[in-house]
Design a protein around this nucleic acid. Structure first.
Length: 589
DNA sequence: GCCGTTTTCGGCCCGACTGTTTTCAGTCG
């Protein structure tokens, strides 16, 4: 079973517990939901954790769930799960994917109308609702019946829980709503929060916080948003709408003097907030978006905070950058004021993965702008150096001699340009394919023309982890091969990427002075943040590159820096924060 | 069922909103 299936199994077990006895199984439900979240967020198959005997390193997986997983991988089933799911009709579970359906509602409807077939249950329920039978049920009414019909219709259209947005897209949607909100005179401040503020690689829905002394007016203004499809809910302090394209926008408000606690609350993550509140409880403090209550104060008066810094300080913590608020150790370190100083965009001194339009007759796509145009942009960004890494010339269409001459010609062009442009230094690189057998696409004699090579996988992605790891390590073995570009090959929302044995890759890179790339392209963000964290811990260096094919794409560097920050990388972990001389020494190392 | 510079036992975040109710259950974040 793969991660998706196992996460679903855990969620179904949690739902079954909810239906059986929500109070009795309260903490088991939370535990299984948390385990499901852990599994669905993994970038490695959980079967590999089982094989490596490292299941106990995963948060939310303790002795019991671990033994259930071991039973699952050994025998293909788990007796305890079969017992837990035995009394629950299978038709309940597909309904749980529909927004507004929880275990209780799904179970009641399935039971009441004796729905048996999980494959047709959604359509069956729709017919029943259309026939007006749900409104007659106790606890339901005409409104809930029509809400069910709409929920099913929207679910079919893929609204609500659609594919997640890339960061620039989400930022654009959020910016439009924020600038609309700011048209209201009652909006003092408006900020996008949630996963967008934490810079998660993809964003599900858009969360916006508003500081106002008149929440009612602000919410009326919000629900009148011209691009809204419908209002999902509208209360006194919060509201949600669905906008065209099926994306959900959640709004929360607080008065300006309590905006700090709202920023904290609505930025999340959920796991960070839960841990933070448990931590504060032990100090006798109860936290919410309203502020902080001292439990020793019998009247439970709320202390308000206008800034996040003051809010964290009141709990005895240093301010935590949003990118690392994932409950992976940040609270413990903030308590002793030992958070790392994360790398910043202004630390970056160069970009090493640039495709110019120089006619190198490459194996893959060519850049759109000339070497000179790219250099102008680099100057505008304040860079000290730029690395040109066009794809290697196609090996099926050229002889080695032709390739040699093409690279030589590019080098001469660069030298010529350099004689007229002294402000930005240039590194002569090449993005070189690692062939399926691990050889590089160009030979040693040609590699010697370069300051260094960026190597990467562009074909035959479907190799297993063992073979792919051997392929990559062999590709990196040449002296000139210094950087592994987009190391997992993933494309967000498109393909998962191949698997590598990271401990072997790290060991090789560390011993041989090789670096892994963080590719800033918003559809890649590769390395993924969790692997950046492993890389940092392994003491292996990284380079943040844009992989630009046009000069304006060099602005995408910020996305790579955000990934690095989510992986707890400091300036020391990132090689292109070095000066030109230091970086060029590393290339020769 | 998980977890640990107060604990290997005894804790487990905190609130909003809706529909169907007349005080609350269910869902969501």
């Amino acid at each position: 079973m793969n991660n998706t299936e196992i996460a679903r199994l855990f969620r179904n077990v949690a739902a079954a517990y909810s239906i059986k006895d929500e109070r009795k199984f309260r903490f088991q439900i939370i535990a299984y939901q948390k385990a499901a979240d852990t599994v669905s967020n993994l970038t490695t198959e959980i079967g590999d954790f089982y094989k490596n005997n490292t299941l106990d390193t995963l948060p939310g997986i303790g002795v019991t769930i671990r033994s259930h997983l071991e039973e699952l991988f050994k025998t293909g089933k788990v007796i305890h799960f079969e017992w837990a799911l035995k009394d629950i009709p299978k038709a309940v579970f597909p309904l749980l994917d529909i927004p507004s359906f929880g275990p209780k509602k799904a179970y009641k409807l399935v039971k009441e109308f004796k729905l048996k077939n999980p494959d047709t249950v959604i359509g069956d329920l729709e017919k029943i609702a259309k026939a007006g039978k749900i409104a007659k049920l106790e606890g339901f009414g005409a409104k809930s019946q029509s809400d069910i019909l709409r929920a099913i219709a929207e679910f079919r259209l893929g609204k609500g829980k659609t594919t997640r947005m890339t960061l620039p897209y989400a930022a654009e949607v959020a910016d439009r709503v924020v600038s609309y909100l700011k048209q209201s005179e009652y909006v003092v401040e408006a900020e996008p929060l949630g996963s967008l503020r934490r810079k998660v690689s993809t964003v599900g829905d858009i969360d916006i916080a508003v500081a106002t002394n008149n929440p009612k007016e602000v919410i009326s203004h919000f629900t009148a948003y011209p691009h809204k499809e419908r209002v999902i809910e509208k209360g006194e302090a919060t509201s949600s709408i669905l906008v065209s394209g099926g994306k959900q926008i959640d709004l929360m408000t607080q008065p300006p003097n309590a905006f700090g606690s709202l920023l904290q609350h609505f930025t999340g993550s959920k796991n960070h907030n839960v841990h933070l509140r448990e931590y504060a409880l032990k100090k006798g403090l109860s936290l919410s978006e309203y502020g902080i209550k001292k439990l020793s104060d019998k009247k439970l008066k709320i202390q308000k905070y206008d800034s996040e810094e003051k809010f964290y300080k009141a709990i005895g913590l240093s301010w935590i950058p949003p990118e690392i608020r994932e409950d992976t150790g940040e609270i413990e370190l903030a308590a002793v004021n030992k958070l790392p100083k994360l790398v910043e965009l202004s630390d970056i001194k160069g970009d090493l993965h640039i495709h110019s339009s120089f006619s190198i007759e490459p194996s893959h796509d060519l850049g759109r702008n000339t070497i000179s145009e790219m250099l102008v942009k680099a100057g505008n960004l304040g860079y000290e150096y730029l690395g040109f890494s066009e794809h290697n010339p196609s090996i099926s269409k050229h002889t080695p001699t032709q390739i040699y001459n093409l690279i030589k010609k590019r080098n001469e062009d660069i030298e010529h340009i350099l004689s007229n442009n002294k402000s930005v230094r240039i590194l002569k690189l090449l993005e070189t394919d690692i062939l399926p057998n691990g050889d590089l696409a160009i030979d040693n004699k040609i590699l010697e023309l370069l300051d260094g090579a960026i190597v990467s996988i562009h074909s035959v992605f479907n190799m297993n982890s063992v073979d792919m790891t051997k392929r990559v390590i062999k590709g990196l073995s040449h002296k000139k091969a210094k950087i592994l570009a987009h190391p997992t090959g993933r494309m967000l929302n498109e393909r998962a990427g191949y698997e590598l044995d990271w401990s072997k890759i790290f060991e090789f890179c560390k011993r041989n002075n090789k670096a892994l790339e963080i590719n800033s392209w918003p559809g890649r963000l590769d390395l993924p943040d969790v692997i950046v964290r492993l890389t940092v811990n392994a003491g292996v260096k990284m380079v943040i590159n844009t992989d630009s094919h046009m000069s304006e794409q060099m602005d995408l560097m910020k996305y790579g820096v955000e990934v690095a920050r989510r992986g707890w990388a400091t300036k020391d972990d990132i090689l292109n924060t070095l000066s030109y001389n230091e970086f060029s020494d590393w290339l020769k190392s």
